[in-house]
């Protein structure tokens, strides 16, 4: 089973890109599974189900979404394997820009859009900087020069990645992206694998439900600003 982690900032077009890739993979008559991670709510599982792919939805609720991701992804991979999926795609949003679901030896994709601003590539951490493939979306809305400038900013923070422009609406570029998915890592289990980068730590009173503001309520892993 070919397994890929797809991540990217909220509303960057992850689901649209994956849907277009699914259409191209289905044209090759392959069985696909998708695991959609989100926080509070998502309707995207319905979009996937409509395409006739196997879907699993995970909502992290009151937990840190990426910690939730890493505690569940191994079972998801086993689930996909047991259902004889030939492709399994996990989709998760990088919500704090410091999180990243990417796993060593597993093909990692980051989706980022042309409208997000010229400094955004710099602001996104390992989710973008350690990805193998960077997909840039919404290119139809801006000019050629702006696409080139944006791509060069992405290239600067992840010079080793393959950078592709894909249009999530028309599907332009999706066929080409799919040919890269065909070369994704082929695995049966995530046993023994490691994350590409540690997740941000939080182990303080607020993790345990504290809501009051003030020095006396702060215990655990606390860091102070220089003011």
């Amino acid at each position: 089973m070919r397994f890929l982690t797809v991540s990217g900032p909220p509303s960057s077009g992850k689901t649209s890109v994956i849907l277009r890739v699914i259409e191209a993979i289905q044209a090759r008559e392959k069985k696909i599974g998708v695991v959609k991670f989100d926080c509070l709510l998502t309707e995207d599982d319905k979009l996937y189900a409509k395409k006739g792919v196997l879907v699993k939805k995970g909502l992290s609720g009151a937990l840190c979404p990426d910690h939730y991701f890493v505690s569940n992804i191994e079972s998801c991979v086993t689930w996909g394997h047991e259902h004889n999926c030939e492709y399994l795609i996990s989709e998760s949003a990088g919500l704090c820009n410091r999180c990243s679901p990417h796993i060593n030896e597993i093909t990692a994709v980051c989706v980022i859009d042309n409208l997000s601003g010229i400094n955004t590539p710099r602001k996104i951490g390992p989710m973008l900087k350690s990805a193998d493939i960077v997909v840039i979306t919404k290119g139809d809305i801006v000019s050629q020069a702006e696409r080139e400038v944006f791509a060069s900013r992405v290239k600067q923070v992840n010079p080793g990645a393959i950078i592709m422009n894909v249009n999530g609406i028309t599907g332009q570029g999706a066929f080409e992206l799919t040919s890269l998915f065909e070369e994704a890592s082929d695995i049966e289990t995530l046993k023994g694998k490691t994350l590409r980068f540690s997740m941000p730590a939080a182990l303080c009173s607020y993790c345990l439900g504290e809501t009051r503001i003030g020095e006396e309520y702060q215990t655990g892993n606390i860091r102070k600003m220089d003011i």
Partner: peptide
Amino acid sequence: QLSQNMNFVMDLSAEEFIRMHAESR
């Protein structure tokens, strides 16, 4: 590729924008 769409979203002057493009190349 020169697409039909020529919108800009970057907050730059024409000169700054072209310079940034030139520098990236």
